[in-house]
């Protein structure tokens, strides 16, 4: 039974690899550079309203410590105003990233469509070809 399982796994594994290989050969997937750009865009799309002050330790000197403490207080007092703005910006950023990804997908699909005819178009081409061949034979027979 183990042999049967191994054989079945090997067989289906080969079929899967064949599908993946075909994708690599025919895909209009993004170049590595474009993919890297998309990944970087995704990583930087979310902005953080919380910048660390005096982290992981307080700066040296009394003046610097007083400044840091004041900044912490001001940040806390303005949180109610800043956070909603940041949230709006994050929503916009994510929407743009998603829209760009969808556009890239559509572009890839269009590229594929332009390269090879659809099934319907191919069927038309084949039918027309057969008609041409039949007409050509008729002409030859008459000659």
């Amino acid at each position: 039974m183990e042999n049967e399982l191994t054989a079945s796994i090997t067989q289906t594994g080969k079929q899967i690899e064949s599908i993946l290989q075909k994708v690599r050969e025919t895909s209009h997937a993004s170049s590595p550079v474009r993919t890297a750009i998309f990944r970087r865009m995704q990583q930087t799309a979310t902005i953080n309203s919380h910048w660390h002050i005096a982290w992981p330790h307080w700066p040296p000197g009394i003046r610097a410590k007083v400044t840091a403490a004041s900044q912490k207080i001001i940040r806390r007092l303005l949180q109610w105003y800043i956070d909603p703005i940041v949230e709006q910006q994050n929503q916009f950023n994510q929407t743009v990233v998603n829209a760009l990804q969808l556009l890239a997908d559509d572009l890839a699909a269009l590229q594929t469509l332009c390269q090879s005819p659809s099934e319907v178009q191919q069927a038309k081409i084949d039918r027309l070809q057969r008609q041409i061949n039949a007409l050509y034979r008729q002409i030859q027979d008459k000659d």
């Binding site: 796994i9 899967i16 994708v23 997937a29 590595p32």
Partner: peptide
Amino acid sequence: LPQGACIKIPPDVYQRDSLRAILEH
């Protein structure tokens, strides 16, 4: 996990297209 007991897709530039092709199949 062997390919064939599950479907393993490389996390590369072809991931999206591979997923589409596999899911369609």
